[in-house]
Design a protein around this nucleic acid. Structure first.
Length: 463
RNA sequence: GGCGGCAUACCCAAGUGGUAAGGGAAGCGCCUGCAAAGCGCUCAUUCCCCGGUUCGAAUCCGGGUGCCGCCUCCA
């Protein structure tokens, strides 16, 4: 079954056909690095990354650009407040983003272009737009002329004449039409500025993405991602100026991800209700967070709370248990399972791929993994040995396509106190002193250690 | 006001014409000294409401209701 991807522009799922056979180009509007990364940034990155992983799994060579907008009003504002250069703020937040992306096993993009490193490319685009009559310079700024683009609004389903007159024109702006947007902003005193044919200034918000996408991926990219909150105006404007410039389609599939909600409302910087990923990572295993984010389709909104995450952790452990029982990380390859177990592996493999082929439906794909986990546990219970281990490895590989199961079961560094209590419990248990043994188990539980008794004796596990 | 999306069990969540995946929680059973884990079984005659199309609809059409997002910076 061919891969189908939902496209915001045409509002339908279409079979995926790359511009160049065997290759895929992806561009994702990444962070404006004015603050530390929050959960929404991680979700967007993850949504795109899973597409990338799956495309690579299918044999495509993927070029993936994730950009950083490293200069804007809020970055400047913050830098001024801290008495540092704007790069002091942007560099720090880019580092934080990469750190937490790594922590959640988000593969590094092919390239991380930054707005300020593409000033020349932006100037070139602006020149072309002015030459073609789609842009005009006014008062040190340069604006895109929205009405010069007949199909402006096609991505977000808006029409210029229907757009509410609720915007405002900043003092000093010289737009011909209120909907026109800045390609180049003339510098105000004290702001970081770059020289340009229109005077010193800095990029408008949208032109950077067109410049970076075209430079690194070409005039027409296959997949364009980012949060759904960017559809208008950002993606709309990106599309308009790019197509006005090249006359070619800018992106073939607009695959925007759904937003993260808190208590039913959108997580938002402006509202102030958001979680820094740093704070989540301090309390929740990154594997659990990744699993949770993948358990809802990428285009649906997702509720984020510690309770949900905790539930997801329990569910995720169900998937990991058979892998740990079989120790797939260390087990050598062997003959594929046959019979009923072999059938369970084949079914899971097929259903997993069918789900992912259907617009990267990781939620459905994960559901099929649970069926395989049960089959593996059953075979392990029945002493299937090597076959069960190979079935577990099949589960491990499927999860790996989604970037799960990357943590090997770490040998825990138990404190001397815990080891001492555990030793006493082991003794009590061997002496069949159940009362003492259970009390000691309670003590360990209070210290966050779970004790499991198996044929080989007791086993300690972090709760 | 305009544009878009969503509404499936106690909770989360798949499912876009063929007769309701999966997970959590809960209950029963097996296993276990007891637990934990695992396994087996139970848990929506029904998919927000009302009409319609169809042999057949959670899925399509029309009309409601509710919630969310965008229209200003936001992933």
């Amino acid at each position: 079954m061919p891969l189908r991807i939902y496209d915001t522009l045409t509002r339908e799922k279409r079979e995926f056909v790359p511009v160049t056979p065997g290759k895929v180009s992806m561009y994702v509007c990444g962070m404006t690095v004015q603050n530390k990364p929050h959960v929404g940034h991680i979700r967007a990155s993850l949504s795109a990354e899973v597409m990338r992983r799956y495309l690579e799994h299918m044999g495509y060579e993927v070029s993936y650009a994730y950009n950083f907008t490293d200069v804007d009003d809020k970055i400047i504002e913050r830098a001024n407040a801290e008495g540092v250069d704007y790069t002091g703020v942007s560099e720090r937040n880019i580092e934080a983003y990469l750190q937490f992306a790594d922590l959640h096993n988000i593969k590094r993009a092919t390239v991380y272009p930054r707005a300020t490193q593409h000033i020349g490319e932006m100037h070139a685009l602006i020149h072309r737009l002015i030459d073609k009559g789609h842009a005009y310079a006014a008062g040190g700024d340069v604006y895109f002329d929205v009405r010069s683009q007949a199909d402006y609004g096609k991505l977000s389903g808006r029409r210029v004449d229907e757009l509410r007159e609720g915007y405002r024109i900043e003092p000093g702006e010289a737009k011909r039409d209120p909907l026109d947007f800045a390609l180049w902003k003339g510098a105000k005193p004290g702001e970081p500025a770059w020289e340009s044919p229109w005077g010193p200034g800095r990029p408008g918000w949208h032109i950077e993405c067109s410049a970076m996408a075209m430079k690194h991926l070409g005039d027409t990219i296959d997949i364009h991602g980012g949060g759904q909150d960017l559809i208008f105006p950002h993606h709309e404007n990106e599309l308009a100026q790019s197509e006005a410039c090249t006359g070619k389609p800018f992106a073939n599939y607009w695959a925007e991800n759904g937003l993260v909600n808190l208590s039913g409302a959108k997580m938002s910087k402006s509202v102030g209700n958001f979680f820094f990923i740093e704070d989540i990572a301090a309390q929740v295993d990154p594997e659990h967070t990744r699993f949770y984010l993948l358990s809802t389709h990428y285009r649906s909104p997702i509720e984020f709370s510690l309770e949900r995450l905790k539930e997801a952790g329990v569910a995720y452990q169900r998937l990991r248990t058979p892998l740990e029982r079989a120790n797939v990380w260390a087990a050598p390859d062997g003959p594929a399972p046959v019979g009923e177990l072999g059938q369970a592996v084949a079914d899971a493999d097929r259903l997993f791929h069918e789900a992912m082929d259907d617009d990267f439906n990781s939620a459905a794909a994960l559901g099929h993994l649970f069926d395989l986990a049960r089959a593996v546990n059953r075979s392990l219970d029945e002493g299937a040995g090597a076959e069960g281990v190979q079935a577990a490895k099949a589960l491990y590989r499927l999860g790996g396509i989604l970037g799960l199961f990357w943590k090997t079961p770490a040998g825990e560094n138990w404190s001397a106190e815990i080891l001492e209590i555990a030793a006493r419990r082991d003794q009590a248990r061997k002496a069949k002193d159940w009362k003492a043994s259970d009390e000691l188990r309670d003590q360990l539980a209070a210290l966050g250690v779970l004790v499991k008794d198996g044929p080989g004796g007791q086993e300690l596990k972090k709760k």
